[in-house]
């Protein structure tokens, strides 16, 4: 993925950019699929930001060879992944395992989504209730004189109010 950094135009070091293509043969189609899936989810330790399927680093080629060998020998995915992790650590997994360390990563967004939807629900209900209250409640809540030049949002200067009205009027006329 060093190549991709160049998209952002600041890597000046010499580099080569070649697709990693090797002509492996597979005994059946499911093995081939498994090979592509596994190499696509394992990160190349040498080139840092590339999976071993795409990287043209020699180490990635070695790792592809190992994955190919193990897939053809019928090793299950889990043991192939273990093989990599015992050698290179959790770093090689582009799909981090769900552990206490990664709970925030995996579940955090959903918790946030839940909170967000709850807030939307509360706000909407709140606003609907306020509808029945008198309009001037907003005026009393605002704190006058808090900051210099501050006026509550609905208090336009007369000119601005007029301008806005004109704008809105024009739109209706359209």
């Amino acid at each position: 993925m060093i190549k991709r950094l160049c998209l952002w135009l600041f890597l000046l070091a010499p580099l080569s950019a070649t697709a990693a293509i090797d002509a492996y043969e597979f005994s059946n189609e499911s093995n081939e699929e498994r090979f592509h899936e596994l190499t696509g989810e394992l990160r190349c330790p040498k080139c840092q930001n590339q999976n071993i399927a795409d990287s043209d680093a020699p180490l990635a080629a070695d790792l592809r060879r190992e994955v190919h060998r193990m897939v053809e020998e019928g090793e299950p995915d889990a043991s192939i992944i273990d093989f990599m992790v015992t050698r290179y650590g959790e770093f090689v997994l582009y799909r981090p395992r769900v552990t206490a360390t990664t709970w925030l990563l995996w579940y955090g967004p959903f918790v946030l989504l839940g909170i967000g939807l709850l807030v939307v629900f509360m706000i909407s209900r709140n606003r609907r209730n306020r509808q029945t209250l008198s309009e001037n409640s907003t005026a009393t809540e605002a704190q006058p004189g808090q900051t210099e030049g501050y006026s509550p949002s609905d208090n336009l200067t007369p000119e601005e109010a007029e301008r806005l009205n004109k704008l809105l009027q024009q739109e209706k006329d359209q």
């Binding site: 989810e41 990160r43 959790e90 582009y94 799909r95 981090p96 990563l105 967004p109 989504l113």
Partner: peptide, 18 residues
């Protein structure tokens, strides 16, 4: 707490449902 990687499998798994 160590080094780990977060890559396409993670992003796809969460972004697609969202």
């Amino acid at each position: 707490m160590g080094k780990l990687s977060v890559g396409p499998p993670y992003f796809n798994a969460l972004f697609v449902p969202l």
